Simulated scan of single mutants.
Amino acid sequence: MLAVISRTRPATTVLTCGTFDLYHHGHVRLLQRLSEPGDELIVGCSTDQFNDIKGKRCVMPFFQRREILEACRCVSRVIPEETWEQKRSDIVNYNLSIFAMGDDWAGHFDDLRDLTRVIYLPRTKDVSTTELKERIQQRANTA
């Protein structure tokens, strides 16, 4: 007779949020590392309207960025990120164990520690969306 092994620990769910414009290997590596401490990785992808509020100009619209994120093996679910305040309700609604961001955001979300564990992971060196956009602009200007 086979014994059924029951899960003795609750599932660990991680949430991260971001724009994820011009998806690159830095995004891949960050998402892989963010998925490691959990059983499920939820990604809040900033909507076009929220990016307007943040003053970010995206190359790719929300529905394309969402589709790319949904295709990632390590991503369990993608939700629209529409406001800064939404993170608190997402932590409660999705019963999140960890809220995680890249370390360029260190300290910005410490106020969420009353609800969940907050961690900041190092970004991939030598790559950023901002730098990619600048290189693209420089090439366009010299062409």
Score class of each variant (00 low, 15 high):
82 E>Y: 11
10 P>T: 04
59 V>E: 07
97 S>M: 04
83 T>M: 14
59 V>R: 07
84 W>M: 11
123 R>M: 12
68 I>W: 10
45 C>A: 12
50 F>Y: 13
129 T>V: 10
58 C>E: 06
69 L>G: 08
38 G>K: 03
120 Y>D: 07
130 T>V: 06
104 D>L: 14
97 S>W: 02
115 L>F: 13
115 L>H: 02
73 R>S: 10
44 G>D: 01
102 G>S: 12
134 E>L: 15
1 M>S: 13
139 R>G: 08
80 P>L: 15
56 K>L: 04
103 D>T: 03
70 E>H: 07
90 D>L: 15
96 L>K: 05
42 I>K: 07
22 L>P: 04
50 F>N: 07
5 I>C: 11
49 Q>R: 10
79 I>N: 10
69 L>K: 14
39 D>Q: 06
90 D>F: 15
99 F>C: 09
82 E>N: 13
85 E>L: 13
120 Y>C: 09
27 H>C: 05
25 H>D: 11
130 T>F: 04
115 L>R: 04
87 K>H: 03
96 L>T: 05
47 T>C: 01
103 D>G: 06
132 L>A: 08
67 E>Q: 10
60 M>Q: 08
34 L>R: 00
58 C>P: 01
7 R>H: 10
136 I>P: 05
45 C>T: 04
134 E>C: 06
33 R>W: 05
14 V>D: 03
24 H>E: 04
65 R>I: 05
16 T>D: 03
57 R>F: 09
141 N>I: 04
88 R>W: 01
37 P>T: 01
39 D>L: 07
15 L>D: 11
121 L>M: 13
136 I>L: 14
111 D>I: 12
100 A>T: 14
123 R>F: 08
54 K>W: 01
110 D>C: 09
51 N>S: 06
140 A>N: 12
89 S>F: 01
119 I>Y: 01
81 E>R: 11
30 L>G: 03
55 G>E: 02
127 V>G: 05
78 V>G: 09
21 D>G: 12
45 C>R: 02
27 H>S: 03
3 A>K: 13
20 F>M: 08
18 G>I: 00
53 I>R: 05
11 A>L: 12
66 R>F: 03
84 W>A: 13
42 I>S: 01
52 D>N: 06
72 C>N: 13
15 L>W: 14
67 E>M: 10
63 F>I: 04
82 E>G: 10
70 E>K: 14
16 T>P: 01
99 F>E: 03
142 T>P: 06
72 C>V: 09
75 V>F: 04
80 P>N: 11
78 V>Q: 09
40 E>H: 15
69 L>V: 01
106 A>C: 11
124 T>C: 13
37 P>M: 00
28 V>G: 00
42 I>Y: 06
101 M>C: 12
123 R>L: 13
142 T>C: 09
55 G>Y: 05
135 R>N: 08
99 F>I: 07
142 T>L: 11
116 T>K: 02
20 F>V: 08
65 R>K: 12
131 E>M: 13
120 Y>T: 08
39 D>C: 05
103 D>P: 12
90 D>V: 14
104 D>W: 15
46 S>I: 00
30 L>D: 02
13 T>E: 06
44 G>C: 04
129 T>H: 03
36 E>H: 08
2 L>M: 07
